[in-house]
């Protein structure tokens, strides 16, 4: 519904009257709650999970990193594998999955974090990913006329379409997350820039998929890479809700009332744990017609 919501934003801008900063007295401060950011790809590079704690809402202090936790990953009913804390002073609070740690498609992985007599756990299954058969990038000349601070599209912004084809996997419940890289640098970093696909209506079919990424900073000749990642439906919901509760917050029509973004971590912690199988395809960005 993300794209759908955008339709109404222009109306909202017109009708929601004025806006002003407001100082509300916030009671029941709940800082110090464990937050887990754990998205582990099954690739042969180092990956990290990040542990932080919640802070007071109006706090402008840098986030509080959690050091000294014991973090393990367990495959199915195997024995726990420890993710060692980074020793680099610039990346405290990060716990490293080494490059040689590989995961198995179809296995469930349990993340266990223990610190100060508290134990937090989460489970995620490594789902398969199909191969990308073809890829094209082209400039989309739609001129967006709606301006809104909620959406990363401004009037006159251009959109680049990355068109890929692949054969959707036969089982139901597949969700793929797409990110893109320009010259091997990740360009879709924030959840609001992510694009995902679920197979509810197109299960098992050959799918031509246009993924629209607004605000690509790319020039002809650049190398564009698309990364397609298998994720759980819950993580797609997580991203969608996150977008609703942050970028669309307070929007009269398009948003839901304030509520917490869901989590799959136990014991009252926030955040998310996901293991994911990626697949890649690259192309050189060139004009559709030779000028």
């Amino acid at each position: 519904m993300k794209k759908f919501s955008i339709i109404f934003l222009a109306l909202v801008a017109l009708l929601s009257g004025c806006q002003d900063d407001i100082d509300l007295e916030l009671k029941d401060d709940q800082s110090g709650i464990m937050v887990v950011e754990a998205f582990l790809r099954n690739i042969s590079t180092r990956e990290a999970i990040k542990l932080t704690r919640t802070t007071s809402y109006y706090d402008s202090e840098p986030e509080e990193l959690v050091t000294g936790a014991l973090v393990t990953i367990t495959e199915d009913n195997g024995s726990p594998f420890q993710l060692k804390e980074s020793t680099n002073p610039d990346s405290l609070g990060y716990y490293i999955k080494p490059a040689n740690f590989s995961m198995k498609i179809g296995s469930a992985y349990t993340l266990t974090i223990s610190i100060d007599d508290e134990i937090y756990t989460a489970v995620s299954e490594l789902k398969p990913i199909p191969n990308i058969d073809s890829m094209e990038v082209f400039y989309n000349d739609i001129q967006f006329l709606f301006a809104s601070e909620f959406v990363p599209i401004a009037p006159g912004d251009t959109i680049y379409d990355i068109n890929i084809t692949y054969t959707e996997l036969p089982q139901k419940g597949d969700v793929y997350l797409f990110k893109y890289y320009v010259n091997d640098t990740l360009a879709s970093f924030y959840p609001r820039d992510f694009v995902y696909f679920d197979d509810e209506f197109l299960n098992g079919e050959v799918t031509g998929s246009v993924q629209q990424f607004p605000k690509i900073q790319a020039d002809y000749g650049d190398k564009i890479t698309i990364e397609m990642l298998s994720i759980s439906p819950e993580l797609a919901t997580f991203y969608e809700v996150l977008f609703n509760q942050t970028d669309l917050s307070g929007n009269l029509f398009a948003s839901s009332p304030p509520a917490n973004v869901p989590t799959n971590i136990s014991n009252g912690a926030r955040g998310n744990f996901q293991v994911s199988q990626p697949t890649y395809k690259s192309t050189i960005f060139k004009p559709l017609f030779q000028e």
Partner: peptide
């Protein structure tokens, strides 16, 4: 109303 906030993937999320 929020009682705190946290960061996830570069986005600040109210609690």
């Amino acid at each position: 109303l929020p009682v705190g906030k946290y960061n996830y993937n570069g986005t600040s999320i109210p609690l």
